[in-house]
């Protein structure tokens, strides 16, 4: 073979081999990129992986890594290393958002208007910051086999027949904060004055067997009948009911207090386009439907749920999430450290 024809053949063969890779590279636009996101662990992360990460990986080659921790711990990690954030996206709850915004650790979401329009009206609490992934509230639950008459209000948790059989979340968990605010506001207090809430808590204290920061720990207490009644996350009560546990889900007389879980682009992420693609998939994919199916959550978007899912959701009533009582998260963030110290003193 002559030198010229050899080189021509070689060039042809090389371009022939390279062509599929070039075409592949165009299709898989995020090949080789890994997005780091914190996680809530358990079924929450499982649904995220199945409905967001996996489809995105198949379509774009993007790899998503979830690191389970609490929202508070993830917030602390982001704030501790602003120059080199450990996450590209951070999942944080309403109480964590003011600090993240104040420290400019997260950026407003830069999504197309039609995607933002998919969100339920008035669901965002922090302007352009954060895409609400789910909304959960504190409800009252009791063991229907062992507690009679049923509890209807948080004040009922002070009943003498429940001595040593009430468990609650502490203020490290957002649920504990919501419980305290519900008690405070029902007794004439506010975010600026939670004293009435602590007074109400003092009446319940003789019945409290345990306060915990861990949602899973509280779940275990109810499942093992170590505790028979208490305030708990609606989605967890819903999943206990689905598993056949005799636990009630009651909207307390004091009202429904809830928070949103947001996902936010972290300032300084090296992959803004991949972050955008992740958020798009989250809003347009089956994530909301699966969250409603598993946890019974009312979706935070206008997604049309299948009839079987829509029929088995947490009973927020006709107005849905609009029934949640408003909470001033700026004040909660400002006072939380003080409330934690006070709670620890009261619970000793």
């Amino acid at each position: 073979m002559k030198r010229r024809s050899f080189l021509q053949s070689l060039a042809l063969a090389t371009s022939g081999l390279a062509l599929p890779n070039i075409a592949w590279g165009q299709e898989k636009r995020f090949e080789g990129i890994t997005l780091n996101i914190n996680g809530y662990g358990g079924d929450y992360d499982r649904i995220l992986v199945e409905t967001v990460a996996k489809p995105l990986e198949e379509q774009t080659g993007l790899t998503v890594m979830h690191t389970p921790s609490t929202a508070a711990a993830a917030t602390a990690r982001i704030l501790a290393s602003p120059a080199n954030p450990p996450f590209d996206l951070i999942m944080a709850d309403s109480p964590n958002m003011p600090d993240l915004i104040k420290a400019e650790a997260i950026t407003p979401t830069d999504l197309d208007a039609d995607l933002i329009a998919m969100l339920s009206p008035n669901i965002r609490e922090f302007g352009d910051h954060g895409i609400p992934m789910s909304a959960s509230s504190m409800v009252l639950t009791h063991n229907t086999k062992l507690v009679d008459p049923p509890v209807e209000s948080y004040a009922d948790l002070a009943r003498p027949d429940l001595e040593g059989r009430v468990a609650t979340l502490n203020l490290e968990n957002g649920g504990g904060v919501l419980f305290l605010l519900a008690l405070a506001k029902a007794n004439g207090g506010s975010e600026d004055n939670v004293g009435p809430g602590f007074e109400a808590l003092r009446r319940i204290k003789p019945n409290i067997t345990s306060t915990t920061a861990s949602t899973v720990n509280l779940l275990q207490l109810f499942e093992q009948e170590e505790a028979l009644a208490g305030p708990f996350w609606d989605g967890r009560v819903f999943s206990m009911q689905r598993a056949g546990k005799p636990m009630s889900l009651i909207v307390p007389v004091e009202g429904l207090y809830g928070l949103r879980s947001y996902i936010n682009p972290v300032k300084g992420t090296k992959h803004p386009e991949a972050v955008k693609a992740y958020l798009e998939q989250l809003l347009t994919g089956p994530f909301m439907t699966e969250m409603s199916r598993f946890f019974g959550y009312v979706p935070t978007t206008r997604v049309q749920l299948p009839p079987d899912v829509a029929a088995n959701m947490i009973p927020y009533g006709e107005n849905g999430l609009q029934n949640l009582q408003p909470v001033d998260w700026q004040k909660v963030a400002a006072y939380r450290s003080e409330w934690i110290a006070q709670f620890n003193r009261e619970m000793r």
Partner: peptide
């Protein structure tokens, strides 16, 4: 935190709560 259930408080827990949840790093 898990075995004491709020009735037993040790300094490690208090520090963790103030740093991670309360974000009161100075305290």
């Amino acid at each position: 935190r898990l075995v004491g259930g709020g009735s037993v408080q040790m300094l490690g827990s208090i520090i963790y709560e103030q740093v991670v949840t309360g974000l009161n790093w100075p305290l």
